[in-house]
């Protein structure tokens, strides 16, 4: 028996919206420690890793490890039938091939259940080694989304460079070029509005902007985003999910031929 209950159903909606553009089908792996998902986009350029720890749920029961294959667009559509304040419960039998989403209104005067067929998804699980990154930038998530969107009006790729001066986002296109520099800024009143740069070595990497724009669908999950880069590794873009875990996106760089 699997039973996961979340008082803040809206959170689950945000999680699905943050993944469904990048990944169509994925396995939700549930164990006593929580729920996780790892999936690559169809071109194997980006990878999304989700963790929702069991202690972040209001009720979490998982008698047996389960890997439940789902079409993320179908789940997102289903969750749109839940109110933002609804309590959402996921239920599945150990041997069943369906999952039930139950939505309860906050006053408990409306209860809906939607049953969805599970899919058999063969997915490759990648081992992601722990790494020390040359540069880690923490900044407001809305600012990061704004920068990606603004640069995409000029070009398709972005060069992200971290130096002592700050983090520079540069692009070039047919109509011209653009540079946006963000300096470290820890003097603002609210920590979530600050930009913090931890740099061991300067680093400069090139990425396809359209993937970064997909990652920013996670902006409603967190006020801040952390971007980690090393010259010989995919970048990591992480949004923390309050008290529960994270959604991390890994993006392979563009490299010289």
């Amino acid at each position: 028996m699997l039973e996961l209950r979340l008082l803040q159903g809206g959170l689950l909606k945000k999680v699905l919206e943050a993944m469904r553009e990048l990944v169509t089908d994925a396995n939700f792996d549930c164990s006593r420690s929580g729920c996780s998902l790892q999936a690559m986009d169809s071109s194997h350029v980006a990878l999304v890793a989700l963790l929702l720890r069991s202690d972040g749920f209001d009720h979490f029961r998982c008698d047996r490890n389960r890997s439940m294959g789902m079409n993320l667009n179908h789940v997102a559509k289903l969750l749109r039938c839940a109110g933002n304040d609804d309590i959402v419960t996921l239920k599945a039998d150990d041997d069943g091939d369906t999952v039930t989403f139950m939505f309860e209104s906050p006053k408990q005067d409306k209860i809906a259940d939607f049953e969805m067929k599970l899919m058999d998804i063969q997915s490759e699980h990648l081992g992601i080694p722990e790494a020390e990154y040359q540069a880690i930038v923490k900044m407001p998530s809305q600012e990061f989304a704004r920068i990606c969107r603004d640069l995409s009006t000029i070009g398709d790729t972005v060069v992200i460079s971290v130096t002592k001066e700050g983090v520079k986002f540069s692009t070039k296109g047919d109509i011209g070029s653009a540079n946006i520099v963000c300096r470290q800024n820890t003097t603002v009143d609210k920590p979530e509005e600050s930009t913090v740069i931890e740099m061991k070595d300067p680093v400069s990497l090139t990425f396809a902007l359209r993937y970064l724009i997909s990652f920013t669908k996670a902006t409603p999950l967190s006020n801040t985003v952390t971007v980690s880069m090393s010259s010989d590794l995919p970048m990591v873009v992480e949004y923390k999910i309050a008290d529960m875990g994270y959604i991390r996106y890994y993006l392979a760089p563009k490299i010289d031929e």
Partner: peptide
């Protein structure tokens, strides 16, 4: 010209 690399060339299966 820069070529797009793939995640699978950095992380191993397993």
């Amino acid at each position: 010209v820069r070529q797009q690399s793939q995640i699978t060339s950095f992380f191993s299966l397993g």
